[in-house]
């Protein structure tokens, strides 16, 4: 049962991590408006489950809920995006089109498109590590990827991002 002091504790412990939640959701869903809805839903859900939070890393705890809510949302609204995980080496999402990428003069935009073109499972580890600065242990907690596999997943994700950016740069040269 949530008491008034639980709300205060929630506001002190969990709400400071709303930026992290918004950032993860935005990259998972590749859309600002959709991600705002999901962050809202996930935070409310976290509040309802707050009784189950027994101290520890509040950011990882919130991000885990945000991540799960993102996947549920994708499964419901854009199931095709989750299918790409099975043939991640063949299939590329529309934004990855090298011509589109190369034509982006703006570095920020280029990086955005390249990151968005990666499969969700690569995108999440990159966002958590490179933007959020999470440790491997935290990444494992949030994504459910076994601790021993975080490093290799991250390695493949970085390699894919690097390739995507290189292809774009090569196209631009012509």
């Amino acid at each position: 049962m949530l008491e008034p002091e639980d709300r205060i504790r929630f506001e002190q412990l969990v709400l400071p991590h709303l930026d992290s939640a918004a950032n993860l959701a935005r990259w998972m869903l590749r859309d600002r408006a959709d991600s705002e809805d999901v962050v809202q839903e996930a935070t409310l859900r976290a509040f309802r489950f707050f009784g189950r939070f027994h101290g520890g890393d509040a950011r990882a705890w919130l991000l885990q809920i945000v991540r799960n809510t993102c996947y549920t949302w994708l499964g419901k609204n854009r199931p095709a995006e989750l299918m790409t995980e099975f043939d991640e080496d063949v299939h590329q999402l529309p934004a990855a089109n090298p011509e589109t990428l190369a034509s982006q003069a703006d570095e920020r935009q280029r990086l955005t498109l390249a990151l968005e073109s990666l499969p969700p499972r690569f995108r999440e580890v990159l966002v958590l590590r490179e933007l959020e600065g999470c440790s491997y242990k935290e990444i494992g907690e949030i994504t459910g990827i076994p601790f021993g596999t975080v490093m290799s997943t991250l390695s493949r994700a970085r390699e894919r991002l690097r390739q995507t950016l290189t292809v774009a740069a090569a196209k631009e040269a012509f």
Partner: peptide, 30 residues
């Protein structure tokens, strides 16, 4: 690659409107 990402400024922060909305909803839920 790491430097490039750090310098690109692509971190997405929560908007003040969404933050307010969430705070309100939590108050209501409480």
């Amino acid at each position: 690659l790491h430097t490039r990402i750090q310098q690109s400024n692509i971190y997405e922060q929560v908007s003040p409107e969404v933050r307010d909305r969430i705070r309100k909803q939590i108050k209501q839920a409480a």
